[in-house]
Amino acid sequence: MLNSMLENRYKVLKLLHQGENNQIFKALDTSTSGKVALKIETSENHSLILHEIEVLTDLYNLIGFPRILSQGKHKGRDYIILNYLGKSLHAKFLTLNSKFTLSCVLRLAEEFLYRIESLHKAGYIHNDLRPENVATGYGLNWQSLFFVGFTYATKYIDNDNKRHVLCNDIRILSSNINFSSVNVMNRINSSRRDDLESIIYILIYFYIGTLPWICNKHMSEIDIIKAKVSIVLEPLCKNYPFEFINCLRYVRGLEYDQEPDYEMFM
């Protein structure tokens, strides 16, 4: 794949990420001499990128989301060309001894809430929020944050009746166990409240440097659910900033189809 030329324009330079279903490369746009990102399926049998194209097309005019520059097939595999972004927040986090200051985390919280509110208002739930799926900007956008990784994103508004989709317990859990909500881990269909719960876990992780269920690699899925439930209870909650715990209690009190009060988090 390296040094391949796509569309007689995009030259593949370097592998950035090897996933289970896709690869991400740094590429050169030879017409502008600018960097771009290439995301391509690892197999001809997968069509996850087509779903991501649909989502990102709907988010095209929103700030803080990758922008599709081109799309196509290479040797039978679907690909998309995206604007180039910086490192993930998780990568930066690891370079800072795995801990951000409280003021830094609170600034991140504000950015996260702007992004997730705009995503929800566009009718989508991310479903896979984790530190690796928040990227820093690049070039003129270096101070911005971007949500990435929309493989599991779903619409929560029914296209036919324009109402919130019904709740059910038929859901395939992503690999994002550490930052998934309790409801999602219990196989309850996700909604806006679950994205917010994931964000709170991410913020606690960035501030504390870990989460109880990440520290213990031998915990079962049931044990992780119990640990997440108990994090808001005394005396465990004293280990975390009360702002995060109050937000977590609020989110867990939301009904499945209830619109969150995003301003409450600001």
Rank of each mutant, 00 (worst) to 15 (best):
70 S>W: 13
15 L>S: 11
37 A>W: 00
11 K>V: 14
161 N>C: 14
158 D>V: 09
32 T>R: 12
231 I>T: 06
7 E>Q: 13
199 I>Y: 04
222 I>K: 14
176 N>W: 01
180 S>E: 04
104 C>N: 10
67 R>E: 12
64 G>L: 13
197 E>H: 05
157 I>N: 02
132 E>F: 03
131 P>M: 00
218 H>S: 15
247 C>H: 13
2 L>G: 04
261 D>C: 10
80 I>S: 01
111 E>G: 08
135 A>M: 13
166 L>H: 10
16 L>S: 07
147 F>V: 14
248 L>K: 07
28 L>T: 06
121 K>N: 11
248 L>H: 05
77 R>F: 04
161 N>L: 08
156 Y>F: 15
134 V>E: 04
40 I>V: 13
253 G>M: 05
155 K>H: 07
86 G>Y: 00
14 K>F: 10
224 I>V: 15
180 S>I: 04
136 T>D: 01
15 L>Y: 02
227 A>V: 05
253 G>D: 06
195 D>W: 00
53 I>H: 05
236 L>I: 15
46 H>T: 06
209 G>E: 02
252 R>A: 08
48 L>Q: 14
145 L>A: 10
213 W>N: 01
43 S>T: 08
55 V>L: 14
37 A>H: 02
35 K>W: 08
123 G>Q: 09
263 E>T: 09
188 I>E: 06
231 I>M: 09
200 I>V: 12
28 L>C: 14
183 N>I: 02
48 L>A: 06
149 G>A: 15
220 S>W: 02
225 I>D: 01
250 Y>R: 08
245 I>S: 07
168 N>W: 05
69 L>I: 15
179 F>V: 01
85 L>Y: 00
259 E>M: 09
249 R>K: 14
199 I>S: 05
150 F>H: 09
248 L>W: 00
178 N>P: 01
133 N>H: 03
185 M>K: 06
156 Y>E: 03
254 L>E: 07
110 E>D: 13
92 K>G: 15
216 N>G: 01
87 K>V: 12
57 T>H: 12
163 R>I: 11
192 R>D: 00
105 V>M: 03
256 Y>G: 05
79 Y>P: 05
207 Y>C: 06
46 H>W: 01
157 I>C: 05
6 L>I: 11
217 K>Q: 15
106 L>A: 07
101 T>L: 12
64 G>I: 12
7 E>L: 11
4 S>V: 08
164 H>N: 00
80 I>P: 03
153 A>Y: 07
233 L>W: 04
82 L>G: 02
244 F>D: 09
166 L>Y: 09
18 Q>A: 14
194 D>F: 01
120 H>V: 15
222 I>N: 11
184 V>Y: 01
78 D>V: 12
77 R>L: 06
156 Y>P: 06
40 I>Y: 03
251 V>K: 05
85 L>P: 06
82 L>A: 04
